[in-house]
Amino acid sequence: MGDSGPGGVPYRRLFGLPGVAAQGVLGFLAQLTQQVAPVGMVLVVQKATGSLALAGVTAAAFSVGAGMGRPVQGRIMDRRGPRVVLAVTALIHVAALLGLIGCALAGWPWWPMLVLAWVSGAGLPPISVSMRIEWGRRMAGEGRTAAYSLVYLVQELAMLVGPLVFGLLIAVASTSLALGVVAAAAGAGTLAFSRALRVGSAPPGREPGRVFADRRMFVLLAVVLLLGGVIGTLEVGLPALAVARDVPAATGLLVAALSLGGIAGAAAYGARSWGSAVQVRLVGLMLALGVALAPLVLIGALPLFWAALFAGGLVLNPALTTGSLLVDEYAPAAQGEAFGWVSTAIGMGGAAGAAGAGVVAERFGPSAPFLSAAALALLGALLATSLLRRAPA
């Protein structure tokens, strides 16, 4: 149970802190390439080489690099603070993207493009991790629910708006120029965001702790991995369903339903002060996600499908937020690295879920991935029940 208070008191407290509003805006700008980069790579590489397979492998290299880079970035952030990591990664990320564009335009062999795609992913600036550390340290107790909800809300907005801006730029310029402009804007946003941080370094005299000192962190990452699997399954299942029903243009509306639900869910979840245990909330949210997605297997009308997706989005981002709250409890002395592992788990789960959804859709029909997504969420709820036990001595 919770109490929102008038006007969402937790958010009023959060936005009352100096610099938070500016950090949110700059963080939004800095994350524009998170969705645009892999899509832009596919378009640029396919146009330059004529190979969709190579384009897909290039995007995969970006995702692998991002998954490998996050824990390393987080470990350095625990020791040196986020500012230096953000500045260095901004330069690496943008330079690698621009280098990939140059290689494609110059007709270079495939391998430099793959290397640069990996480097670009490994250098993807840890904006959301930095936001969690910055706002989490400045908001005590239940205020962190609002802080972490705002992190996912800003991220979701960037992932929703970024591709739209990219599409508009393509309409008035070339794909390569559009990707370069978005990359440069995100790099500038990252540098400005790093300068706007108030928590510029790790607390003095503190050595980073071990991420897995509390073994429950392994369980939490497994739950987050399954949550990432839900996201990846939906990302493939939605366009597959739209194509199977001969309305491929509906893909954007279906994806938007999930994103809008996520934005609304993050905003509502952070506006309340919750009295229940965080572990109980995680179990309940994963269970609610599975229940919300299960009817998608049977729904035929797209408007009802859209509404069910929106309902799933309402609990998806709160589940991610709750996972972040548990990082505070299980790895308080190594938050940067722990949040990095959370990001890696989401990415790995998403990749596995996407691959599995393609196979399931091909063998059992376009509705089957949604059953898989519901099953992954319910399995996550079951696994999360082990977190309800008391902490080990």
Rank of each mutant, 00 (worst) to 15 (best):
T89M: 10
A184R: 04
A354S: 15
P82H: 00
L383N: 10
E207M: 08
W306K: 00
A192W: 13
A381R: 09
V360W: 00
A352T: 04
S194H: 05
V44E: 05
C103E: 15
L325F: 04
G67V: 15
T251Q: 11
W306H: 07
L105P: 13
A357C: 01
A173N: 12
A158K: 12
A267W: 12
S367W: 13
L282E: 09
G27I: 07
V223E: 05
S120N: 14
G2I: 01
G284N: 04
A37K: 06
A213T: 09
L378H: 12
A393S: 15
A308Y: 03
L241I: 01
A249F: 08
L17N: 01
S149F: 06
V119C: 08
G123K: 03
Y11Q: 07
V119G: 05
G162C: 12
A250N: 03
L258S: 10
V297T: 15
G123T: 05
Q46S: 15
A104G: 07
E235L: 13
R363E: 04
I92K: 09
A374V: 14
G200E: 11
P126I: 04
V64R: 02
G365R: 02
L153D: 00
W110H: 11
A377S: 14
S176K: 00
D3Q: 10
G69Y: 03
A171E: 06
G252P: 05
P18M: 07
P82D: 01
S276H: 08
A61F: 14
F212Q: 03
S149K: 03
A95I: 09
L98G: 11
V327A: 10
T49S: 14
G261F: 11
F364N: 05
A361Q: 03
G50M: 05
G284F: 06
G7C: 01
A202G: 12
A196P: 09
S176G: 13
A384Y: 06
D3A: 09
W274F: 13
G102A: 15
V224T: 07
M131G: 05
L238W: 03
V223I: 03
G313Y: 07
R245S: 09
V359E: 01
A257Y: 05
L124M: 13
Q155G: 02
A173D: 07
A373G: 14
L254Y: 06
Q34K: 00
L253G: 15
L253N: 01
L227W: 00
G141P: 01
L238R: 02
E235I: 07
G265K: 10
T49Q: 07
L378R: 13
G340F: 14
A333N: 13
A59G: 15
